[in-house]
Design a protein around this nucleic acid. Structure first.
Lengths: 107, 107
DNA sequence: CATCTGCTTGGCTATATTGCCAAATAGATG
DNA sequence: CATCTATTTGGCAATATAGCCAAGCAGATG
């Protein structure tokens, strides 16, 4: 395989969007139901401006979309397939010292 | 859902390991075959110390493991399930303006 | 045992990210 | 239309990340 800087940067940027505890939580939360910014803010106890910026990162990555109704903005997950990855993350965590059931064995 | 800082930080750290173009490339490359550090270095044209640090990030995250033979260190992917995620990343990229075939529709 | 090769670690600089506050914007309401 | 609420944007400070070079270390080789 050859390393194409641009190809992998494009993909890494999408992954990076999920690579933050708050944004990861939002992805899981929004997979259950849509939420407005103020609801999400209450859930994580951060400044609303911080929450808004996290949401714009997810939106720019194409992972969530938003819908303005009244003066509230509702976000929802656009890509439930990202949840597939989380199963693997759980496997990594639960089997850090043992064999990974979903994965190849590696001492 | 409630936001547990520690829970999501632990998971985000694993995702963060893959959220870099060079490390993402290594994950894909190592899914095909094991490689020593000098081979990977040649593929990405970075200083070998930089490559070594990227590999240690992947290793600390539990995603790859290494095997020293002679004076070479061979790395290989420990968790092929991370590749599942890449399919979703492709879907996000190919359908940024249209509906995601694997995902919910979202204007 | 001196030296070479392959790799890792320490240390530094440049850059990116995160989170807060303050200010701006947009829709709703009196 | 003044004001309130919900959200976004700008700007700043603190922290984290990425890359290089130099130095260290371990196994192989002469």
């Amino acid at each position: 395989m050859t390393y194409s800087q641009q190809h992998f940067t494009e993909r890494a940027n999408i992954i990076k969007a999920v690579a933050h505890p708050v944004r990861l939580f939002f992805v899981e939360e929004l997979s259950q139901q849509e939420r407005c910014v103020c609801e999400l803010t209450a859930l994580v106890s951060l400044d609303i401006s911080t929450v808004s910026k996290h949401l714009s990162v997810l939106k720019n990555a194409g992972l969530v979309c938003d819908d303005k109704r009244g003066n509230q903005v509702f976000y929802r997950l656009r890509t439930p397939c990202v949840l597939n990855f989380l199963n693997c993350v759980e496997a990594v965590i639960n089997n850090s010292d043992a064999e990974l059931t979903c994965c190849t064995t590696c001492k």
